[in-house]
Amino acid sequence: MAFAGLVALSNVSFRVPAGRIHGLIGPNGAGKTTLFNVITAIIPPSSGSVLFETRDITGASPHRVARLGIARTFQNVRLFRNQTVLENVMVGTFRHTGAGMMSGLLRLPRAVAEQRRTETEAVECLDFVGLSDLIDRDAEALPFGQQRLLELARALALRPKLLLLDEPAAGLNHRETEKVGELIRSLPARGITVLLVEHNMALMMSVADAIVVLNYGVKIAEGTADEIAANGEVIRAYLGDEDIG
């Protein structure tokens, strides 16, 4: 993946098996967010392809990627500022609901019934992350840690098959990070595969089944947490740069 001559990702290739939690680590600038952006089709790759459930989705548009069941959270939390906590999560259900503009305008019974179901599902997602007390708060009024949880709830409302988490614990305190770890660990049981980018090594080691390590846009290692921790090249990559660890 090259941006105007700057190679961001070079020959990065790996498979994420279904029902697992796969981690992605690497020093800053290693290309992790670029990789996420390529997968979710925010930018098209200059070469290579993205396969999802054996289907080539390279070059699809972001909303089509989401419709296929890939959800994500963002590094710098992108909530919908004009809406409440509940409304934010309900927007997450868009891909598996169907009421169109006319049914909305005319308040057709089918649309109303669907919205009731959507609301129930949204409340469930908020329950799961522990925010159900706050359903009518304005999303942007929430403290940062809760905003991260809200974004997670919203992504879950999509009923994703694959969930991309971009530094979900960044900026969280120890207790909040533990909570995020718990939530992530419970996802495969709900049928969700996770690809996780994190700088918090403790969290990463405790949740990931396998980890891919990037450095300067190149995959330098892949394996279990223990294997990675013992890998010389990985250690050099981190100690060679100033890292947050």
């Binding site: 972001p62 909303h63 989401a66 419709r67 959800a71 919908f80 927007v91 891909r95």
Partner: peptide
């Protein structure tokens, strides 16, 4: 962009 990421 976030809306598109929701499948909209």
């Amino acid at each position: 962009a976030a809306a598109a990421a929701m499948g909209i």
